[in-house]
Computed example of a mutant assay.
Amino acid sequence: MKTRFKKVSSSHISISELMLPSHTNFSGKIHGGYVLSLLDQIAFACASKFSENYCVTASVDTVNFLKPIEVGELVTMKASVNYVGNSSMVVGIRVEAENIRTGEIKHCNSSYFTMVAKDNEGKNVMVPGLILTTLKEVSRYEHSVRQLALKKEREYQKGIATFGSIESILSSNEYNVKVELE
């Protein structure tokens, strides 16, 4: 049973980094893998700060790349704990890129990481309960509850999928697929 609660605001973390040519992919935009690495770092920092324990990434539930990030833009990532379980936390992260010459800011990415708190022996440890103090925090918490329910439903559906479902795929013209079993 949780005896300790903390405000969402106690989990807030923000990092900013100037995007350099060394961070680009072959099309000259900032590489998504580099952005994912930064996302994982801030998710770790946010969850560890909130739980006061070492944390590991359990899953990357959503990463929506909305707009490309350009070389020379200042990228700011803002993270907060949106939901807590027993030892797990859902960390929401917003990524914005600022053109430092014009001051224009664009929303480039939204991500949700599930992090798990660990003790010194590597065992799961209880995290504090969450105190929601704004309607935005309540909305983010509700969103996390819905996403977790959808995740459980997807896992359930995987377990009941049958080989017969190939028939429905083959009989439909909706899919761009050909089955050639050997």
Rank of each mutant, 00 (worst) to 15 (best):
A97H: 05
A97C: 05
E98M: 03
E98I: 03
N99S: 09
N99Q: 13
I100T: 15
I100K: 12
I100D: 10
R101C: 11
T102D: 08
E104H: 15
E104N: 15
E104W: 09
K106S: 10
C108H: 04
C108L: 08
C108V: 06
N109H: 05
S110I: 00
S111W: 01
S111K: 00
S111M: 06
Y112M: 03
F113N: 02
F113P: 00
T114P: 02
T114S: 08
T114Q: 03
M115W: 05
M115F: 02
M115Y: 02
M115P: 03
V116T: 04
V116R: 00
V116Y: 01
A117C: 13
K118Y: 14
K118S: 08
D119M: 03
N120M: 14
E121V: 03
E121G: 04
G122Y: 02
G122R: 05
G122K: 00
K123V: 01
K123D: 04
K123A: 04
K123Q: 06
K123P: 02
N124G: 05
V125S: 01
M126Q: 06
V127C: 05
V127L: 08
V127M: 07
V127G: 00
P128T: 11
P128V: 10
G129W: 09
G129N: 12
G129S: 11
L130A: 03
I131F: 07
I131W: 04
L132R: 05
T133L: 11
L135Q: 09
E137T: 00
V138M: 08
S139C: 09
S139Q: 10
R140H: 06
R140E: 08
Y141I: 08
Y141N: 12
Y141E: 04
E142C: 09
E142M: 11
E142P: 04
E142L: 11
E142Y: 11
H143Q: 05
H143W: 01
S144E: 04
V145H: 12
L148F: 11
A149V: 11
A149T: 11
A149Y: 12
L150R: 08
L150M: 06
L150N: 07
L150F: 06
K151M: 08
K152Y: 07
E153C: 06
E153N: 07
E153V: 03
E153D: 09
R154C: 07
R154P: 04
E155P: 06
E155S: 13
Y156H: 03
Y156D: 00
Q157I: 14
Q157V: 13
K158I: 08
K158L: 10
G159E: 14
G159R: 15
G159S: 15
G159K: 15
I160L: 09
I160M: 10
I160Y: 07
T162P: 01
F163G: 11
F163S: 15
F163H: 14
G164N: 15
G164Y: 12
S165L: 14
E167D: 14
E167M: 10
E167L: 14
E167T: 14
E167W: 13
S168W: 13
S168N: 15
S168V: 14
I169T: 13
L170V: 12
L170N: 13
L170C: 13
L170S: 12
S171Y: 15
S171R: 15
N173W: 07
N173M: 10
E174P: 01
E174K: 12
E174Q: 12
Y175K: 13
Y175C: 11
Y175D: 10
N176S: 13
N176Y: 13
N176V: 10
V177L: 15
V177T: 12
V177S: 11
